[in-house]
Amino acid sequence: MATFVTKRLLMALATVLVVAVLAFLLVHAMPGSPGAVSLGAGASQDAIDQLNQSLGWNDPLVVQFFRWLGDAVQGNLGNSLIDGRSISTDLSNRLPVTASLAAGATVLSAIFGIVLGVTAAVRGGLLDQLIGGFVGLLVALPAFWIGVVFVYLFAVQSSVFPATGYVPFEVSPQEWAMSLALPVITLAAGGAAFIARQTRASMLEALQQEHIRTLRATATPTWKILYIHALRYASLPIVASIALQFIGLFGGSVIAEQLFAMPGLGQAVQSSVSTHDAPAVQGVVVIATVVVVAVNLVLELATKFLDPKLRAS
């Protein structure tokens, strides 16, 4: 077990490193030198060259990368080319927004997905078909469309929730929750559908296992067969699908943040890509990767713990 954890930790580290290299290369493939981006249109070529020189843009790529890496491990991701702000500071302010969004949406979609999936598998019949149809619709509707409709229904028509904006938790926990509600529901809709499908399939597969017959043959109550034994058997693929969902939702937050004007990582990616703010893009890609890889690692260890066969080995 200990060697497994070390192995996985090393893998995760390697993943982050590979992404850092890729992001670095991508950023260097972006059109326009940092000097040109920073000084904007109309700057003289001399001024641009001078700025590029001082930013180390003309150094060999390897030197630049290790300089960036050395700074990055000390928590310094450089400064924005657009407004000169520290990227680390900016992202550390943005991370809680996206993290709340993604975590909230993952938890919500897990709860709804599991309940819907288990219900469909266990009840069967008409209810199964209804849930199947509903889930199919949720999968097909784009999140941004659902989001706009939510805004129309809950913010425009009835103003239950604020349409846009984010209130930090420190300012007002209640308003924080209200400001998160619509984006989280928007994000969770598709995720819940995905998890519901996985849950239904895993539950049905679990109920096909022969040990279910043994349980029935020893007069095990139905609720116990369903919710202790079958659900336990089905839990591995369900947890795996939740992990995948978190990765997807973390990325999906780009759209939700744009739609609901949330100052999160997604918005930072979107704006830094549009403005060709190279160090900002690089920083946000690496931070996003670190978060996703870390959460994935935790969930993978959880899966490992759930499976007695893996736990023993």
């Binding site: 991508l26 972006m30 990765i247 999906g252 780009v254 890509v273 996703v292």
Partner: peptide, 24 residues
């Protein structure tokens, strides 16, 4: 399998956006 595991644990959307930044 190792490589694909790594690929699956990446924030795909963010990476796609970074690529959009590079290639337009």
């Amino acid at each position: 399998s190792r490589v694909t595991e790594v690929m699956m644990s990446l924030p795909g959307t963010v990476i796609i956006l970074a690529i959009v930044g590079a290639v337009g």
